[in-house]
């Protein structure tokens, strides 16, 4: 008899504890962030889509060395360039196939001239596949302060400055 009472007490306690947990939660403020209305600030290092930011003078730094194209595991980047008279390469087209990109950031690490950055743009869905093939040299995206310092492990980032929110419009 005592055993039955004890075990039923255990059952009641076991169930009651669980009920107490959920009831307690009922009166606490939920942790939900209602996404399109409310947005979280992305950490500085977050990798969104690739951009070719402009310097203050409005130029990109790409020298068509093709390091990024070689580093990319998926063939996301296809660079077209023309060689001038002085044997210097000039970028003609920086083709970025967004549909293939896995946002691994290897291209940015590979870039020896700090020409590439991964922005915080992440709402990249499009109704048309063609809109996912981007030509980065056509976009005039200013250099964001949060991108200072480069992304390669050789140079460490300065302390997180500001929100780190990239103000990048989706291209295409």
């Amino acid at each position: 008899m005592r055993r039955i009472l004890f075990s039923s007490w255990q059952v009641v306690m076991g169930l009651g504890q669980g009920l107490a947990v959920t009831l307690g939660q009922l009166f606490r403020k939920p942790c939900t962030v209602q996404y399109p209305k409310e947005r979280l600030i992305w950490p500085q290092r977050s990798r969104g889509r690739l951009v070719l930011p402009r310097t203050r003078e409005g130029r990109h730094k790409c020298t068509s060395c093709l390091m990024c194209q070689r580093a990319c595991p998926n063939g996301t980047i296809a660079i077209t360039f023309k060689t001038g008279d002085d044997n210097k390469r000039a970028l003609v087209d920086f083709l970025y196939a967004l549909e293939r990109c896995t946002f691994c950031g290897l291209c940015v690490e590979a870039c020896p001239f700090d020409a590439l950055r991964m922005s915080h743009a992440h709402e990249l869905a499009a109704y048309d596949r063609n809109r996912l093939t981007l030509h980065l040299q056509e976009e005039k995206i200013p250099f964001h302060p949060a991108w200072r310092g480069g992304l390669s492990y050789r140079a460490e980032l300065p302390p997180a400055a500001g929100s780190g929110q990239a103000h990048v419009k989706e291209g295409g």
Binding site: L26, R28, P30, Q34
Partner: peptide
Amino acid sequence: KIAGHMQDRLGPM
């Protein structure tokens, strides 16, 4: 709504 709040979320909003 009750389920949402018990689960630390908001339910339909």
